[in-house]
């Protein structure tokens, strides 16, 4: 099953749709090459595949994406405010965010979210050993209250992700 051409139907469908959208057409050539690529690419890259937790609650995931989109807008206004202010008033800082999530896929989504939203960039996952409690090192553009920031990130992003993937609870 793992080696069959149809091992990852979802991924194949997504590749097919992206291919059609890239060509912006549904002519037979595009459809045929799309089907071939959608089956071949996951098959060729099967060696890299790791079993990841699946999205269990799609509704919640959709809401999460919308929330992140909105937060990107808000985060931008904050960044703009900081950018237009004086450099000497700037209070950047590094923060360690303790993690409850352990699985790579939700962690990646969390790190990406943190990167796109509230004035923070994820820098490093610490420590690298698998079973030690893990932290995400963040760089914050304008650090006012560290404890409040950590609390907000955990409540707003990590908790919903745990629910969506139904893991580490």
């Amino acid at each position: 099953m793992q080696n069959s051409l149809f091992a990852t139907p979802l991924r194949s469908t997504l590749l097919f749709l992206v291919w059609c959208a890239l060509h912006n057409s549904v002519s037979p050539v595009v459809l045929l090459s799309g089907v071939i690529l959608a089956l071949l690419i996951p098959w060729v890259s099967r060696g890299f595949r790791e079993v990841q937790p699946q999205v269990k609650r799609y509704g919640l995931f959709g809401r999460y994406l919308l929330m992140v989109l909105w937060d990107i807008v808000v985060a931008n206004l904050q960044v703009v405010k900081v950018v237009l202010g004086r450099n000497s008033a700037l209070k950047p800082g590094f923060v360690l965010l303790p993690l409850d999530l352990k699985e790579p896929l939700p962690l990646t989504i969390l790190a990406a979210t943190i990167c796109l939203t509230p004035g923070t960039v994820s820098a490093e996952l610490l420590p690298r050993e698998a079973d030690a409690p893990q932290f995400l090192l963040l760089h914050v553009l304008d650090l006012q209250d560290e404890a409040a920031l950590i609390r907000e990130l955990k409540q707003r992003y990590e908790a919903p992700l745990q629910e969506i993937f139904a893991c580490s609870v």
């Binding site: 700037l90 950047p92 004035g119 553009l141």
Partner: peptide, 19 residues
């Protein structure tokens, strides 16, 4: 252009440019 060090400058392109 304006922010003082590499780490803070990184915030510009990841956020403002995305939006």
């Amino acid at each position: 252009l304006k922010l003082p060090d590499f780490y803070t400058r990184l915030h510009g392109p990841t956020k403002a440019t995305t939006l």
